[in-house]
């Protein structure tokens, strides 16, 4: 059975390791914070200028001056800090942030990613995504494997305007966990109950498949 958004977030949370500084994008990536193990030390960075983000505030305690990059009201945890936008992207460019998790419209087997524009139809802007993907060493994409029309978003080459080139390392979708290797997408894991054949049929790009492909562990 294909995963829902929370399950995708749950699987990605397993990639978050002790002492990591992590930047979470808008959408599914934001949910990852809910599933990170409680016995490890992790700090969440939001590019609008905060490290040490906590959960949403209790009702009545929202502060217009304390938000995340998704413009949602947040809280801070002990040890948190605020800084300006230039400083924030300074720490991103100089690779102080260990893991970047973001969404995408398309990912290609060469590591290219597109997530900011559909020419003539939708232009929201790249926000901080271009800066993040150009500098981060460890980038995981959280996305749906196919679009609403049933077409694969895991491609040989991106068709939409790019956000970054050759940067994505891993992709987690409702169907599979894929690693991007110099030879293309390698199938690492499949969603519980989803067959390898189904993943192949849902993927435009070629897949490298070696041996038995285990099911994702979501516990």
């Amino acid at each position: 059975m294909a995963l829902d958004k929370n399950d995708i977030a749950k699987r990605i949370a397993k990639e978050v390791k002790d002492k990591y500084y992590v930047n979470l994008g808008i959408g599914i990536p934001t949910l990852v914070a809910n599933y990170v193990r409680e016995d490890i030390s992790v700090e969440f960075q939001s590019e609008n200028g905060v490290l040490g983000m906590g959960p949403f505030p209790f009702e009545g305690e929202e502060d217009a001056d304390v938000i995340n990059a998704g413009k949602q009201t947040i809280t801070t945890l002990p040890g948190a800090s605020f800084f300006d936008s230039a400083f924030s992207f300074g720490m991103i460019r100089s690779q102080k942030v260990d893991l970047t998790i973001l969404g995408a419209m398309e990912v290609a087997e060469n590591g290219d990613i597109a997530n900011w524009k559909i020419p003539g139809k939708m232009v929201k802007g790249m926000g901080g995504a271009m800066d993040l993907v150009a500098s981060a060493e460890n980038i995981i994409v959280a996305m749906m494997h196919v679009n609403k029309a049933g077409e694969s978003k895991i491609l040989k080459r991106c068709t939409l305007p790019l956000t970054g080139v050759g940067c994505v390392k891993k992709v987690v979708t409702e169907l599979a966990v894929l690693e991007i290797t110099p030879k293309g997408f390698k199938l690492l894991e499949r969603a519980p109950g989803v067959s390898v054949e189904h993943i192949i049929a849902s993927t435009e790009a070629d897949l490298i498949i070696e041996g038995d492909i285990p099911e994702m562990n979501l516990n």
Partner: peptide
Amino acid sequence: QMLSGELDVELTPQGTLAE
């Protein structure tokens, strides 16, 4: 306004804009 061409828009990566 952007899609209709009434408004000229220069989209810039956020970190680049800040810098």
